[in-house]
Design a protein around this nucleic acid. Sequence first.
RNA 1: AGGACUAUAGCUCAGUUGGUUAGAGCGCUACCUUGACAUGGUAGAGGUCCCCAGUUCGAAUCUGGGUAGUCCUACCA
Length: 922
Amino acid sequence: MEKTFQPADIETRWYQEWESKGYFAPQGGDEAYSIMIPPPNVTGSLHMGHGFQEAIMDALIRYHRMAGYNTLWQVGTDHAGIATQMVVERQLEAKGISRHDLGREEFIKKVWEWKEESGGTITRQLRRLGSSLDWSRERFTMDEGLSNAVQEVFIRLYKEGLIYRGKRLVNWDPVLHTAISDLEVISEEEQGHLWHFDYPLVGGEGHLTVATTRPETMLGDSAVAVHPEDERYAHLIGRMVELPLTGREIPIIADDYVDKEFGTGCVKITPAHDFNDYEMGKRHGLPLLNILDDNAAIGSDAPEAYFGMDRFEAREKIVADLDALGLLNKIDDHTLKVPRGDRSGVVIEPYLTDQWYVDARELAKPAIAAVENGDIQFVPKQWENTYFAWMRDIQDWCISRQLWWGHRIPAWYDDDGHIYVGESEKAVRAEHKLADTISLSQDNDVLDTWFSSALWTFSTLGWPEETEDLKIFHPSSVLVTGFDIIFFWVARMIMMTLHFRKEVPFDTVYVHGLVRDAEGQKMSKSKGNVLDPIDLIDGIELEPLVSKRTAGMMQPKLAAKIEKATRKQFPDGIAAYGTDALRFTYFSLASTGRDVQFDIGRIEGYKNFCNKIWNAARYVMMNCDGEDCGQDESLPFDRSLADRWIVSRLQEIESDVARCVASYRFDLASQALYEFIWNEYCDWYLELSKPVLWDDNASPEAKRGTRRTLIRVLETWLRLLHPLMPFITEEIWQTVAPLAGKSGPTIMLQPYPVADDSAVDSAANADIEWLKGVIVGVRNIRGEMNIPPGKELTVLMKNGGEEDQRRLTQNAPFLRKLAKLDEVTWLDTTEEAPVAATALVGDLEILVPMAGLIDTEAELARLAKETEKLEKDLKRLQGKLGNSSFIDKAPAEVVEKERDKMQAQEQALQKLKEQEQRIRNI
RNA sequence: AGGACUAUAGCUCAGUUGGUUAGAGCGCUACCUUGACAUGGUAGAGGUCCCCAGUUCGAAUCUGGGUAGUCCUACCA
């Protein structure tokens, strides 16, 4: 074995081996366990947040696969309608071509080409992360099978009246030229103005002043509203005002939506360009005047003077024109929430168009019930509230998008605007007995990507066919996801799956935190603060990292900011840590919190952990390879105290890990393993094995017993650790397993260790604690007295009981070796002890004679420190036990425990004081 | 505006139903190339558990209020 662990050498090798041998496919078994991957965008790439999520899923999958479940991890990607179309359009733009130049068919061909070209990025990343996905079943939302499922669902929902088409105000993206759903609109506070305009009353005698943040919409005003109880305006309700610049007259209406306190208490109403106004317009039967076109420029229904102007240009002109007319009352600075498209970043316009909707209210009912009655459980449970809050106030879901890339809506129109929904034009004609003379044209729009993602758990398994896979693997066991897509995806999956399968899509939703950058920001492509997990695995120099992170940034200002942050955060680039270290870091951070702040210091530590594991195995192999490790079960062997202890601890760790995984606490699981491997197996057990293995006088039985334990415990914890660190465990296991009497082509299909409670040995645990106590006591004296570690000491023991004596006799060789002693002598109570430095283990006094070794002053100082600590603690205990209400009210065993503690402390203090006296008397 | 979450060592985080001397890693200090590992070993230093009040024999933990931060939902033209 190499002296240090070199991850790069082994990772790709093992992954190829596993994949080519088909180990990732379901292996059979009575009980199924399945996870459907949240499909990443096919043309995107994974960042640290994805890496985190994949690591968790892989751990769950590997764990259950080893535990004997029939395990499926379904892999696939989605087509990300808007994002993908944008990327391809931008590429064409660079060549001066628009998608309209190409035409729909040619354009879609280009998108497919791009998908083929870029789709490999994600799958490559997934492989490097060690994800044990069943690649033979890879799916894509635009595949034929999944497209059929989408069509089937659309047609059925339409026929059931749960999908409808309607002219509504939608969130319109004037750059992407499509409607988007509420969830795709991000509203953030921005600095703007509040313009106050005077609208003259028809018939003279004054005006009303209205305020607006979007002056250009005044061209489409249908009314001015005031509060019905507003005395200032009550007498004007029903009268008309002149709408400047348009030559129109509009009524003054009363509606209690108006806030009397805000502005002047008069609101201009633009039903075609504002969601609230739209509702009010409906209540009052106001006309809808659309003054914009698809680009959000002023449309042909507006006054000619503004026709064709961009909305912001028009805004300026309208303000200027009103000013010229003396109707601009004032302009105030104003902070307002500006809605922007999450993809394009441009200001979204409420815009009147024909769109398709899903009646979400109806579908939500059973979806709410499924979580209420526990058919689906969220972990952590608090997320159920988020889910309920949204579901109980759900809005109809706008599912049509004015894009070319996506599932085209299976609806046809005749010249009279009748709608026919079906799987093809032919089918529609047949169903409705339409004559060939009637011309039909298909709806130009496609469906929201989330519409197809909502079917993911069952469409990937072959639905609408009743496949064997559906029967076995659906519902899936758990959905692993971030809380940011509970609404987008989780809720919609639950609704669709319940409706079409009459069963839940998954039993559990495990909601993990979101990975943040050093400033606590969520990682996202558009912010440019993403980190590629592969860069932590392989490492990357600063310059390539900077150019990678700033590549493709639209705004130079943002690019400069990212560059600066990158240079500050990673002045020397990023070192290569390997996949196992990265994964272990993820697990250690996977607690119940919402935020995961990735810390480079931690991955560094876990890289060292990998090296520790590697070297522990190296030590074991050096001592076991070619030796008798007890593979032959008929040969006798003796087990040392340490052997019994480490086997006992192993059982406890096994049940800890099982408990942690069952509750999705990978942070606790990883910590338990870390502590066991490093602090118990390496620090103590390996050290305790040396006195046996290196002792020429030790019996063959003892050596056999220790080697047997050494190798078997190692082999077991490798399996225990494998779901978290797949590569290093596999590499080591291959050489270790045969010596432990195990065989098999791979660790990943070996049984997962299960605790054997009968092997828990509390006597051994107690004896080892004693041994550790004595060793640490001596080391402590050595450390504080500056006695060189190599200097062998003579130690005397005093005042102990029979148990101490037994432990000493049985473990003297271990004690001598680990505490570097040349002699240990038991003093009878009658014997006079020499002046010595002292440590206490219970009643037992450990004496290190001072002659020539120990500086009196230093020892006194050490004792004083100890004494002070004890006195402080004792005071606290005395206070507690002196309090009669504590004695009366606290449970008896708690009181008893405190009493024992106090007694022990008192005795210890007593001994320290005697010791101090003795030293002073020299 | 409503709601949720977070606040523990210099940094990143644990702390299970209230009962510890409040823990881990990194970082820091001192010593050590002892035959697995200097990516290491040994021994240390370091905390007003955000603040205030309450419940309790006992609060990092429960309740109320406040402060700071993050997020979600809905929004006033």
